[in-house]
Computed example of a mutant assay.
Amino acid sequence: MNSSDKYPFEETSLKIIESLIDMQKDLVFVYHDNEPILFNKASRNFFGLESLEQFAREYGTLENRFMPHDFYFHAGKIENQQTWREAIKSLDEADRIVSMLNHKIKPHAFSVTVENPLDGYELVFFHDITTDLIKRIMTENKTNLDPDTGAYNRNYFEHISPRLISAATFNEKLLGICLIELASDETSLVQSVSQTIKDNIRHDDMLVRWNKKSFMVIFLVGSPEHAQLVGRKIVNNLNLSQPVQTSMSVQGDEDNIQTIIQRCENALRETNDTFSIV
């Protein structure tokens, strides 16, 4: 059974509620008078547990599972006399994010929604945004965009760049960078190349107008081999329309953002290769 022993529901109502929340892909917890009374199939699969009793024995309260990282909401951000649901609801919606480890010790990031359908009841939904993490860091804002191409501008990138290595490390990924240099800064060429890049990168990748005739693509990957595939796809599609010179590098153990970018810039100066990996 995936609910507590003290049900504030009739048996039939309980089965209907359990069936409904089990259909949800999000992790769902139901609270009554500040105590968890139900959690759904997605939650059981995520934590590798079959009942709230098991959960309490293994972890104590749910907020104990929130990883204490500055990017996210966690128990250390709860004020005195607040429940964690009250504390997270007091934040702006964009900041209502937690991270938890699944039963395989893999971190996931979740946006959190708390609903109060009846007095004394709370429904908490955890929507997995792990794959959208970089997009959430790089919140869309027109002042952050290059007016000619719609790519992020360099000032914005430099503002958020200290967070990117940390985000990559926290999510067990590697940060990759492709630096793309055009033959000229003629407006129609720059716009054409920008659109081609946008059409051939993933939803979570970041395109930056680095200077008048260069772009930078920032992306997260699971391995250097995966990074090479990402880089080659960009180069192959660009060279079908306009010749460009591209260098790519992947985060090493001691790298910061500046180190990775410097390797790419050095490669463009030191070689005439269409695509170099450094």
Results as ranks from 00 to 15, higher is better:
5 D>M: 07
6 K>S: 14
8 P>R: 13
10 E>K: 08
14 L>Q: 14
14 L>K: 15
23 M>Q: 09
24 Q>S: 15
25 K>I: 13
31 Y>Q: 04
32 H>N: 14
33 D>V: 04
39 F>S: 00
40 N>G: 04
47 F>N: 04
49 L>Q: 03
57 R>M: 08
58 E>V: 12
59 Y>F: 12
63 E>H: 11
65 R>H: 06
68 P>L: 12
71 F>P: 06
71 F>Y: 08
72 Y>D: 06
72 Y>T: 11
73 F>W: 06
79 E>T: 04
84 W>Y: 09
92 D>E: 15
93 E>M: 06
95 D>N: 13
99 S>C: 11
100 M>R: 08
106 K>C: 01
112 V>N: 00
114 V>H: 06
116 N>L: 12
118 L>F: 09
131 T>L: 08
133 L>C: 11
140 E>M: 08
145 L>N: 04
145 L>E: 06
149 T>Q: 01
156 Y>H: 14
157 F>T: 00
164 L>I: 15
168 A>V: 07
169 T>K: 10
171 N>I: 11
174 L>F: 09
177 I>C: 09
177 I>L: 14
178 C>D: 09
180 I>R: 05
181 E>T: 14
190 V>N: 02
195 Q>W: 13
195 Q>V: 09
196 T>S: 09
198 K>V: 08
202 R>S: 08
202 R>W: 01
205 D>R: 00
206 M>G: 00
208 V>L: 08
210 W>K: 05
215 F>L: 02
225 E>S: 13
228 Q>S: 13
239 N>K: 05
241 S>F: 06
241 S>M: 03
247 S>Q: 02
252 G>V: 03
253 D>A: 10
254 E>A: 14
263 R>A: 00
263 R>N: 00
278 V>K: 02
